[in-house]
Protein backbone atom coordinates (compact mmCIF):
# COMPACT_ATOMS: atom_id res chain seq x y z
CA UNK A 1 0.00 0.00 0.00
CA UNK A 2 1.32 3.45 -0.95
CA UNK A 3 -0.04 6.48 0.88
CA UNK A 4 0.27 10.17 0.10
CA UNK A 5 -1.51 13.30 1.26
CA UNK A 6 -3.74 14.88 -1.35
CA UNK A 7 -4.94 18.27 -0.17
CA UNK A 8 -6.89 17.69 3.04
CA UNK A 9 -7.49 14.06 2.13
CA UNK A 10 -5.21 11.09 1.68
CA UNK A 11 -4.84 8.83 -1.32
CA UNK A 12 -3.96 5.16 -1.01
CA UNK A 13 -2.70 3.04 -3.90
CA UNK A 14 -3.09 -0.71 -3.52
CA UNK A 15 -0.18 -2.22 -5.41
CA UNK A 16 -1.83 -5.64 -5.63
CA UNK A 17 -5.04 -4.58 -7.31
CA UNK A 18 -3.91 -1.28 -8.84
CA UNK A 19 -6.88 0.43 -7.16
CA UNK A 20 -6.70 3.92 -5.72
CA UNK A 21 -8.83 5.07 -2.77
CA UNK A 22 -9.47 8.48 -1.33
CA UNK A 23 -9.38 8.48 2.46
CA UNK A 24 -10.78 10.84 5.04
CA UNK A 25 -8.00 12.73 6.84
CA UNK A 26 -8.45 10.62 9.95
CA UNK A 27 -8.42 7.32 8.05
CA UNK A 28 -5.31 8.45 6.20
CA UNK A 29 -3.55 9.35 9.45
CA UNK A 30 -4.46 5.98 10.98
CA UNK A 31 -3.20 4.07 7.95
CA UNK A 32 0.01 6.07 7.96
CA UNK A 33 0.43 5.32 11.64
CA UNK A 34 -0.12 1.63 11.00
CA UNK A 35 2.40 1.64 8.17
CA UNK A 36 5.02 3.30 10.33
CA UNK A 37 4.41 1.45 13.55
CA UNK A 38 3.42 -2.04 12.49
CA UNK A 39 0.84 -3.77 14.69
CA UNK A 40 -2.05 -1.65 15.90
CA UNK A 41 -1.45 -0.33 19.41
CA UNK A 42 -4.33 1.87 20.48
CA UNK A 43 -2.31 4.00 22.86
CA UNK A 44 0.42 4.46 20.29
CA UNK A 45 -2.15 5.37 17.67
CA UNK A 46 -3.78 7.90 19.97
CA UNK A 47 -0.39 9.35 20.70
CA UNK A 48 0.47 9.53 17.00
CA UNK A 49 -2.72 11.45 16.31
CA UNK A 50 -2.15 13.71 19.35
CA UNK A 51 -5.55 12.94 20.79
CA UNK A 52 -6.28 13.06 24.50
CA UNK A 53 -7.83 10.27 26.55
CA UNK A 54 -11.31 11.74 26.19
CA UNK A 55 -11.21 11.01 22.49
CA UNK A 56 -10.37 7.35 22.96
CA UNK A 57 -14.01 6.30 22.56
CA UNK A 58 -14.30 8.22 19.32
CA UNK A 59 -11.07 6.69 18.13
CA UNK A 60 -12.39 3.23 18.87
CA UNK A 61 -15.53 3.96 16.89
CA UNK A 62 -13.49 5.20 13.94
CA UNK A 63 -11.36 2.10 14.01
CA UNK A 64 -14.45 -0.09 14.01
CA UNK A 65 -15.81 1.88 11.08
CA UNK A 66 -12.51 1.54 9.27
CA UNK A 67 -12.68 -2.22 9.63
CA UNK A 68 -15.96 -2.11 7.75
CA UNK A 69 -14.55 0.25 5.12
CA UNK A 70 -17.01 2.96 6.07
CA UNK A 71 -14.27 5.55 6.19
CA UNK A 72 -12.75 4.46 2.91
CA UNK A 73 -14.67 6.01 0.10
CA UNK A 74 -14.31 4.16 -3.15
CA UNK A 75 -13.22 6.59 -5.84
CA UNK A 76 -16.28 5.76 -7.92
CA UNK A 77 -18.46 7.12 -5.14
CA UNK A 78 -16.66 10.43 -5.24
CA UNK A 79 -17.55 11.19 -8.85
Amino acid sequence: MHLRPCGEQWAAFHTGTGDTHLLDPVAGAILQCLQENGPLVLAQLSDCLEWNAADAGILAEWLAALQHNRLIRERTECL
Binding site: Q9, T15, G18, C78
Partner: peptide, 24 residues
Protein backbone atom coordinates in the same frame (compact mmCIF):
# COMPACT_ATOMS: atom_id res chain seq x y z
CA UNK B 1 -10.43 19.27 -4.25
CA UNK B 2 -7.01 17.74 -5.06
CA UNK B 3 -8.45 14.32 -4.20
CA UNK B 4 -11.37 14.77 -6.60
CA UNK B 5 -8.92 15.99 -9.25
CA UNK B 6 -6.81 12.87 -8.71
CA UNK B 7 -9.73 10.47 -9.11
CA UNK B 8 -10.88 12.32 -12.24
CA UNK B 9 -7.42 12.05 -13.78
CA UNK B 10 -7.13 8.35 -12.92
CA UNK B 11 -10.47 7.67 -14.61
CA UNK B 12 -9.12 9.29 -17.78
CA UNK B 13 -5.68 7.63 -17.77
CA UNK B 14 -4.95 4.92 -20.33
CA UNK B 15 -1.91 3.33 -18.66
CA UNK B 16 -2.30 4.19 -14.94
CA UNK B 17 -2.37 0.55 -13.82
CA UNK B 18 0.57 -0.37 -16.05
CA UNK B 19 2.76 2.38 -14.58
CA UNK B 20 1.64 1.59 -11.01
CA UNK B 21 3.14 3.53 -8.12
CA UNK B 22 5.00 5.96 -10.42
CA UNK B 23 1.66 6.99 -11.93
CA UNK B 24 0.01 7.22 -8.48
Amino acid sequence: SPGECLTGLIDNAFNYAALGTRAF
